[in-house]
Design a protein around this nucleic acid. Sequence first.
DNA 1: CCAACGCCTGAAAGCGCTTCCCGAATCGTA
DNA 2: TACGATTCGGGAAGCGCTTTCAGGCGTTGG
Lengths: 348, 348
Amino acid sequence: MTGGSYVRLEDVARHAGVSLATASRVLQGSSHRGRPEYRAKVMASAAELGYIPNPHARALAANTSDTIGLVIHDVRDPYFALIAGGAIDVATARGQFVTMACTYRDPELEARYIANLRAQRVRAIILAGSAFVDAATSKAMTTELESYYNAGGSVVSITRHRLPGDCLVVGNRSGAADLARRLVDLGHTSFALLAGTTRLVTIRDRVAGFKKGLAESGIEVDPAFEVSGTFDHDGGLRATQQLLASGRLPTCIFASNDVMALGALTALRRAGVDVPGEVSVAGFGDVVMARDFVPTLSTVHLPLEEMGAHAMELALRDERGSSPRKVTINGEVVLRESTGPAASRRRR
Amino acid sequence: MTGGSYVRLEDVARHAGVSLATASRVLQGSSHRGRPEYRAKVMASAAELGYIPNPHARALAANTSDTIGLVIHDVRDPYFALIAGGAIDVATARGQFVTMACTYRDPELEARYIANLRAQRVRAIILAGSAFVDAATSKAMTTELESYYNAGGSVVSITRHRLPGDCLVVGNRSGAADLARRLVDLGHTSFALLAGTTRLVTIRDRVAGFKKGLAESGIEVDPAFEVSGTFDHDGGLRATQQLLASGRLPTCIFASNDVMALGALTALRRAGVDVPGEVSVAGFGDVVMARDFVPTLSTVHLPLEEMGAHAMELALRDERGSSPRKVTINGEVVLRESTGPAASRRRR
DNA sequence: CCAACGCCTGAAAGCGCTTCCCGAATCGTA
DNA sequence: TACGATTCGGGAAGCGCTTTCAGGCGTTGG
């Protein structure tokens, strides 16, 4: 980036026959209303010369920028890809830029990255991804974020309580409880739980909600049926194989996210267990593949893309909300092919 | 972003008892080697005060920035999510920022975005996503990119020929031809092609390569077996249903990408057609779900994440290559459960 | 022992934009 | 018509950093 000539504001001003200050005021649009003929002239000149302001100069002078920081767990994970997609689209439509990082839930990496975003004077920071149950882990990151927030920056977090700024929280507890009720209605009485890491608040909530839903009907989960594993396809697969190896199967398996549920489905299929004839399977999240798998997966639908878009809209509000708002997004149970009436025990 | 106090270079300099210029030179590291005691003092002061340079001031003065522009088709598409993931990780590791946009193959949006990236003086632009066969469509975008390139910026494109700068090109033709040969070896003689949009260079190449591979064994594709559809799961599903409705099935279906192949698998499963017993199915790309589906999908593996990482590395080379380099990435055929020996015609 | 030569350092001039401040112009009203 | 109240435009001072330009000092060679 050495050469290259750029049209500067000064060029526009001269071309329009006004001062630099006036040109600047006109182009920022905002509330300024100068002499209409000046406005017109400046706009015309800018268009004619193909003027694009130097964002760095602007940022330096005004101490703000037109970029938003997006910090997520991992783009490769469809859950976050959807959120990011929704957020990015809104930003692009509003002429804002998005700088994105994947932090893989590493609190230290998060902290460093946030510090950099602050130095960049980003307009807002959007943070997606559940925190660890152990709040102390993310102390450094929280501090960093607070100092950004206190300096006037907007913060919007998704699924992450206790952070400054606005927050979109997913009704994990209630969604899972709803799902449990629906499954109980189908006649299920014995359940397995594939929990993934219980260190994540999100997962803990889903599990707790599910248990609560069952408890309303007096159903408890056999501890032997609570299997944990990694939070991905493979985790679901292995956990289910473990279940299969134990020789005893529940009538229904709840995985704390869709990808794990898909893994469970695969394991069952390979073992020749009929779904939903013998065992029903349900997940949480409604990631794209849930609809495309065979059998299609019953799950709790989360409007991930809309959540990303909503987060970006909150982030871009002109004025930072006087009082931080907390929006709860409730999932909706969607029963598809992977669940069915409980097979009567005798018949097996 | 109003309040907030930041440590400036001046503070560091004063604290270290040197001039601003010296502090600047030390902190940029680079080749400068001043008096060692000064170096040490400055470094220590910077660390002690928690100095983070203002990237905008730096960008303004030096006319470069520490950010890379990443322009992709769509984050939600796992193919691009993987590329983006690989690229972002490399950038983060090197202390660079990534600003990302999804342009949905809209050439006009691409052009606008690239112009903005240029104005931002990004260090490099990485562009992923096949172009349309019709080159004229992306004229504006190409022009914009050229003017960026000529101004000294680095450009790395993935799967996109004829653009200035370096290019990672996927061996679509050869990969598809390899796949075809392997399928022929399995005894298949009648093939269906689910092509998706043939307006994309990538797809056109895959189809052409596949046909070439078949032709080597004197096999041609029955025109009735060339079905096109949208480039996604649903497209593969519908195309296959169309095939099923026609009453005649090939022994093998090749979909020009994995998601379509997964759609085909779903359609066949629903219709009760055994895979690979009656029909074999293969895709292209080896997106994560290909390995996790039931049956697991035979496909051409593309090292997408590595491609993203590689692209970023090219983009971050200190000096822009004197002559733009073109790296060809060859896919590797992976036969999994969705393909098998051709069922003998008689036996059906 | 002195001149010529390097290497460092610090002062200062921008990079392109925003915004404060003040004089000029405009408007309303008596 | 004239005067104060407003509004608007232009000059100029930065925003925080890089980099040029001299000048200072320590070396080396004659």
